[in-house]
Amino acid sequence: GKMTGIVKWFNADKGFAFITPDDGSKDVFVHFSAIQNDGYKSLDEGQKVSFTIESGAKGPAAGNVTSL
């Protein structure tokens, strides 16, 4: 299901971020390909987002990341 959280930090050079979920679970890795914005895919620290949890090769990662 959809979860919500806050972007903890975003590394534009490497194209990934971490989200701190609102439910208090541990921070979730985000690859820029999961960001659903049109055009430039970036996130801002402190931004509120919704996302799903996908199981990636290196463990859980956020999918369908959308700005709220």
Rank of each mutant, 00 (worst) to 15 (best):
P60F: 02
G15H: 06
P21N: 02
G39R: 04
I19T: 00
D27K: 02
A34G: 07
S55T: 13
F32P: 02
A62F: 06
V28A: 02
N11R: 03
A61N: 13
N37W: 12
G46W: 03
D23K: 02
S55N: 10
F16T: 04
F29N: 03
P60C: 15
K41D: 11
T4S: 07
I6N: 03
S67P: 04
K48A: 07
T20G: 03
D44P: 04
F10Y: 11
K58Y: 11
I19M: 01
G56F: 08
K41W: 14
K41N: 13
H31M: 10
S67H: 15
F32T: 07
F29S: 04
V49A: 01
K8F: 03
I53F: 08
K26C: 15
S42W: 13
D22A: 06
P60H: 09
H31W: 12
A34H: 12
A57S: 11
G1H: 11
F32Q: 06
L43K: 01
D38R: 04
A57Q: 10
G56K: 08
G63A: 14
D38K: 06
A12W: 09
D44I: 14
S42M: 12
D44L: 14
M3F: 07
T4R: 05
M3E: 02
H31A: 12
K14I: 14
A34Q: 14
G15V: 02
A57L: 11
V65P: 07
T20D: 01
T20W: 03
S55L: 13
S67Q: 13
T20F: 02
D38V: 07
S25D: 04
T52I: 12
G63W: 01
H31R: 08
F29V: 11
N37G: 14
D23L: 02
G59H: 07
M3N: 04
H31Y: 11
G24R: 03
Q47C: 13
S25F: 03
L68Y: 01
I35C: 07
D38Q: 10
I53R: 06
E54F: 06
A17N: 00
F32C: 13
A61Y: 13
K41M: 12
N64K: 05
D13A: 09
V49W: 00
I6G: 01
I19Q: 00
G39M: 08
V28E: 02
S50I: 13
F29G: 02
T4E: 04
T4M: 05
P60A: 09
N37T: 13
S33T: 11
H31S: 11
F18M: 13
K48N: 05
P21S: 02
S25R: 04
I19F: 01
D22T: 05
A34V: 10
I6D: 01
G39P: 08
I53P: 06
P21R: 02
S55F: 12
W9H: 05
G5A: 01
G39E: 11
S25E: 04
N37Q: 11
V30P: 01
S42V: 12
T4L: 05
V49G: 00
K48G: 03
I35F: 14
T66R: 04
T66N: 15
S55C: 15
L43G: 01
I53L: 10
Q47L: 09
G63L: 05
G56P: 12
T66H: 14
G15R: 05
D13L: 09
A57Y: 06
G46Y: 02
T52H: 08
S55A: 12
G59A: 08
D27T: 05
G46Q: 02
G56Y: 09
G1Y: 08
V30N: 00
D13M: 06
K41A: 10
A57H: 09
F10W: 11
N37D: 11
Q47F: 06
A34M: 14
F51A: 01
D38W: 10
D38F: 12
P60I: 08
F51E: 00
S25W: 02
A57T: 13
A17F: 14
I6H: 05
D44M: 14
N37R: 05
I53T: 08
A61I: 14
H31F: 08
S50W: 11
I35S: 03
K41H: 13
G63Y: 01
G15K: 06
F16L: 14
L68G: 15
A34C: 14
D23H: 03
